[in-house]
């Protein structure tokens, strides 16, 4: 530690000291760096160093409990490109994302509009809609598992009383993903509703007043004032939903364990399975980097799109 202080002292001494205010600024700057340093160092040690290490591992044949590792170049990446299970898991993640992003965003915006107005029970409804976010994933998934059950579940009983055909939702590879999607939306909507609510409250009320005076209908107000001014919020919500959706794993873990026949195995679940159940750390890490690249690319494109829309 002494070496660091010495370095800092010598740095402040060697700095040009002809003008006093400049010297003062410099001192302040250094203090600021001292505040930044601890968190930056932690970030470096606990985030960037492991990432770098993981990147190296992705080029290795590395068995989790084995004592040896060997470099195999791009082999992991090459075999992932033709791995049926990995490609299927990517498809499942995107299926989930493509359905969830528009529906969840629309519902959360709708709910935000509903609870924005101050009525007697607004507080109650705000709480009610937010509760799913607070409930633990494991509990929610376990309860939904019972709801979806064919013989026993409430969902099929409702279908039965409506004289609709019943189905074993989670055991049928064609419908299982829909079961996961419904739970995902149920659980995610509340959080983004709150974000939208904050965005809505930021829109000045006089704009609406002016619109009313000009004779604009509610629908016109929504499309001409609310949506454009919510652009930043919507961008945040869509990007976060995309990232969350592609990273989906916890719900799947409890609800279906990736089944039936891998129909709900998402990319992150696949990576977990490879690395920790099958102990193929190098292979799993390579898959994680492919997913990372995909998520990064999508986020960049989305940010660009929303920025263009703003101007």
């Amino acid at each position: 530690m002494t070496s660091v202080t010495a370095a800092a002292e010598s740095a402040s001494k060697t700095a040009p000291s002809s003008k006093k205010p400049r010297r003062f600024l410099r001192g302040e700057e250094i203090t600021a760096w001292w505040f930044v340093l601890p968190s930056f160092a932690l970030l470096l040690i606990f985030v960037f160093y492991p990432m770098l290490q993981a990147f190296v591992i992705s080029f290795q044949n590395y068995n989790l409990v084995g004592s040896t590792r060997s470099f195999i170049g791009l082999d992991n990446y090459k075999s992932l490109m033709t791995d049926r299970d990995f490609l299927a898991s990517l498809r499942h993640s995107f299926h989930f994302a493509i359905v969830v992003i528009p529906i969840q965003t629309a519902i959360s915006l709708g709910l935000a509009l509903l609870i924005q107005k101050k009525f007697k029970l607004t507080g109650l409804f705000r709480t009610l809609y937010f509760i799913p976010v607070v409930i633990s994933t494991a509990v929610a998934a376990t309860v939904f598992k019972l709801i979806y059950n064919k013989e026993f579940g409430i969902l099929n009983n409702v279908l039965k009383t409506l004289h609709l055909p019943t189905t074993n939702f989670l055991s049928n590879p064609d419908t299982a993903m829909n079961g996961v999607i419904m739970l995902g939306i149920w659980k995610g909507v509340g959080f983004f509703m709150i974000i939208f609510l904050a965005g809505l409250n930021n829109i000045p009320q006089d704009l609406y007043e002016a619109a009313r005076v000009d004779g604009a209908t509610k629908i016109q107000q929504f499309f001409r004032i609310t949506l454009p001014l919510l652009n930043r919020t919507t961008a945040f919500v869509v990007i976060m939903t995309t990232i969350d959706a592609i990273k989906l794993s916890g719900l799947v873990f409890v609800l279906t364990s990736g089944g039936p026949n891998g129909a709900t195995e998402t990319a992150v679940y696949y990576i977990y399975k490879m690395a920790f159940q099958q102990m193929q750390m190098g292979y799993g890490t390579a898959a994680a980097f492919i997913l990372f690249a995909i998520v990064l690319a999508i986020s960049l494109v989305q940010m660009r799109l929303f920025r263009n829309a703003e101007h």
Partner: peptide, 20 residues
């Protein structure tokens, strides 16, 4: 921030890491 202070900063970081 000028280039000199960047150098100082990285030196400080490196020292801190090594010391740790």
């Amino acid at each position: 921030m000028n280039s000199k202070s960047k150098v100082v900063l990285s030196a400080m970081l490196a020292c801190g890491l090594l010391a740790g």
